[in-house]
């Protein structure tokens, strides 16, 4: 157990506790949502939400908002993109969700760049905007952790209340609609809660890490177990372990935490795939 004691001694727990808690919460919340995002084959949702949030934050900044207050227009932008996707019935518009997402992504990116350009024209600084969406886990503080905890609690309540509907939508959105499940309501709420969660996590721990924590734990869980509930729990647990474990490894080895978390979650996918192959699943 010498390595364990050594690791604890190397980490200043008082300073790093919110960072570890933030990593764990970001991992758990992104991992849980990832079950549905990966299961429905819409991993592009994360990128789309990030740029919609950026567009919201950019225009918030243009209207004079700054600091933590920029989170509000960022969430607004992300929600707008999410609800636009929710309202567009892929069957009625004859387009796949991923194609709709690519449209929303390019539109929101265009808006974000327009806003950044306008910052230059009006002589304003866009530093607050950039730091909002591309935050770093190492600067996570308790106030961020509370916000992330709140988001986790909202996800928990949502999943408990609508688990059976989410399971049906995960199977087939069209079929769920045809058998009388209120898909529009549940799907739109899911997209809304995903938009808020990802935006809050982006500003705390950074985009690259969130993309990996949305897709990797879910992909690993899909390889290791079956049944929607078990996959959901395992994915949240693997996300939590990636966030927390990645930080500890990074701290002990003096490496960049975000990169280690991403690599750890990627490694989990590889191990899970090997395990499944070895098991013959």
């Amino acid at each position: 157990m010498l390595w364990y004691r050594g690791a604890i001694e190397m980490i200043d727990l008082v300073y790093w506790a919110p960072v570890m808690a933030g990593g764990a919460l970001a991992g758990a919340s992104s991992g849980a949502l990832g079950t549905f995002i990966v299961g429905m084959r819409i991993p592009f949702l994360g990128v789309c939400v990030a740029h919609a949030a950026l567009a919201g934050a950019v225009f918030g900044s243009l209207f004079g908002l700054g600091g933590q207050l920029l989170l509000l227009p960022a969430i607004g932008g992300a929600l707008l993109a999410a609800f636009a996707l929710g309202m567009a019935n892929p069957e009625r518009v004859s387009l796949d969700n991923n194609i709709l997402l690519s449209f929303l992504f390019s539109a929101s990116m265009g808006l974000a760049f327009l806003g950044i350009g306008l910052h230059g024209i009006f002589g304003k600084s866009d530093n607050d905007v950039r730091s909002l969406l591309w935050g770093s886990l190492n600067f996570c503080r308790w106030e961020d952790v509370w916000l992330m905890g709140l988001v986790c609690a909202a996800i928990l309540v949502f999943v408990v209340l609508f688990f059976k509907e989410l399971r049906a939508i995960l199977f087939s959105r069209m079929e769920a609609q045809a058998v009388g499940i209120q898909v529009g309501l549940v799907w739109t709420m899911f997209l809304g809660i995903t938009a808020v969660t990802l935006t809050v996590n982006f500003q705390t721990v950074g985009g690259l890490m969130i993309y990996s924590l949305v897709s990797n734990p879910a992909m690993a869980a899909f390889q290791l177990t079956r049944g929607c509930g078990r996959v959901l729990l395992l994915s949240a647990f693997l996300g939590l372990m990636s966030g927390l474990g990645g930080f500890v490894i990074a701290a002990v080895a003096d490496l960049p935490s975000g990169a280690v978390i991403v690599l750890l979650s990627s490694g989990l996918v590889g191990c899970a795939a090997l395990f499944r192959r070895y098991r013959g699943g």
């Binding site: 079950t35 990966v38 299961g39 084959r41 059976k164 509907e165 399971r167 049906a168 995960l170 199977f171 087939s172 069209m174 079929e175 769920a176 045809a178 058998v179 009388g180 499940i181 992909m219 869980a221 899909f222 177990t225 079956r226 049944g227 929607c228 078990r230 996959v231």
Partner: peptide, 28 residues
Amino acid sequence: IGYVPQLLPARSELPLTVREVVAIGRTA
């Protein structure tokens, strides 16, 4: 109305078991 569509979801990564898919009928 019980509806059996022509095309079935063919995603190999779907985590749902056969029992969970049948339970979608009760969900509705």
